[in-house]
Design a protein around this nucleic acid. Structure first.
Lengths: 249, 249
DNA sequence: CGGTGGATTGAAACCAGTCAATGGGTGTGG
DNA sequence: CCACACCCATTGACTGGTTTCAATCCACCG
């Protein structure tokens, strides 16, 4: 059971589709579908279930006092949603589907049961949350000290590496189901600025952008530009080698 | 052993001072002292030890490509430093003492050993990192969508609640061993802006600020102003009640 | 065909940054 | 003890990147 579960998370294989069968002992596992723009839950709702993304993109977001929107995290297939809420009773942010999605959900207490049965799994979660933590800290760096252009480059590279670490082929093309409003609300900019920077990046020959798809024409230059570190790739490598902790024991 | 350890973390009591005695089985536990401004380690150094703050304040920070500085996290007594780095081999950021500090450190692999022996402890770490995660997300909200004044108010309230959750008495006074440069580098502002906003907040009667000490004269109004949620207090309450997970079992 | 949401482009306003000068507190060394 | 250096804080004038406001265009869809 553990192996199947961690495989889901790492997406080493694609057994996601028969996940529920792996958990005969558990009762409360469901599969859900959401359409483009639908909310899975909203900030303040009772936190009752942990989700695993099977298909599609989602974003967690907050609506701020001044009416602004802040996109916090993006979730793509095999991501777990809700680990950071386990100690809470209410969702700290909303979850919205950015395109048609399929999710698997496990009731919170059953998820904790599964987790408790496997120290390995808990250990893995600790490492995973550590990765999340480091990435959030770097996002803070980017949001506070970069200008609009660098923020956007950093943002695009981060999403690219997040997706690349799961898809085997290292494509220079990225499916991006986000409007420029979404990108703006993720970076603390406006759609106007995003539009201007995107066309600037296009004119400079770094990317090509149209209809939910970004082509990276000079990834190296962009990585150089913002001094980008691919934490996702490093993490995957360490986990795959199994020497992240094994070597420590 | 576990209990003593979690007590350290929660600082329910102050057994920190005899921590090493609690771990007779472990070999590599040390105590360190650092002076004001000293670096414990720098970004890129090999990550070998986990630290627990015994006394003083520290900050993790990054030096950016353009020469700017970004303060990421503050650590006060009983905080654990390094949980987010367990999967890595290098420190993703530097750690600097903001005043004279005492730290306890455990060699990384021994820390993992201790952790593995106690599922409860791992579970606690997962919850703790979840709290960290939620707070980082809210910091991102504040950094991207608030103006300088609101950022600073949010920042002060966050530090106040971080400290208050450990100190029993709910003081309206906060020891703050930070220069205005530090605050600026934490929020993506400049020392000039910080200075102007601080005096504005003083003139408006919200706070009184002098020499590393902030007096909160109207905390309620400030909380209202930025719609502040005290995640630290909620977390402490849930852990203290023991019903965070127990009730789920 | 008109309606809608997203993207583009331009002009003006504004918040915070930058530059610069001053003042204050602290510690050091002559 | 004073002089000086150093760091931090304060204040004012100017600059500039981003927002705001607004108009237009485009693609998609009922």
């Amino acid at each position: 059971m553990l192996n199947a579960f961690t495989k889901h998370i790492l997406r080493i294989d694609s057994v996601l589709s028969d996940a529920p069968n792996d958990y005969k002992g558990t009762q409360d596992i469901h599969r859900h579908s959401f359409g483009d723009g639908e909310f899975v839950y909203e900030a303040g709702d009772p936190f009752t279930r942990v989700y695993i993304v099977e298909q599609g993109w989602l974003a967690s977001l907050n609506v701020l006092a001044n009416g602004g929107r802040q996109l916090l995290n993006f979730y793509t297939p095999s991501d777990i949603i809700g680990l950071e809420c386990l100690s809470g009773r209410k969702a700290p942010s909303s979850l919205k589907a950015l395109c048609p999605t399929r999710l698997i959900s496990i009731e919170r207490t059953e998820f904790l049961e599964i987790m408790r049965k496997s120290p390995e799994l808990m250990e893995y979660f600790i490492l995973l949350m550590g990765l999340q933590d480091v990435i959030l800290q770097e996002r803070i760096c980017s949001m506070s000290r970069m200008d609009a252009k660098h923020k956007i480059v950093y943002f695009l590279l981060l999403l690219k590496s997040k997706v690349a670490v799961k898809d085997e082929e290292d494509s220079q093309s990225l499916f991006l189901p986000l409007t420029q409003y979404d990108i703006a609300d993720s970076l603390g900019l406006t759609n106007v600025t995003v539009s201007k920077v995107m066309s600037e990046l296009e004119k400079a020959g770094y990317i090509q952008y149209k209809r939910q798809r970004i082509e990276f024409l000079d990834t190296e230059a962009l990585i150089e530009m913002v001094n980008f570190q691919d934490r996702y790739a490093s993490f995957k490598q360490k986990i795959a080698n199994g020497n992240n902790i094994a070597s420590a024991a």
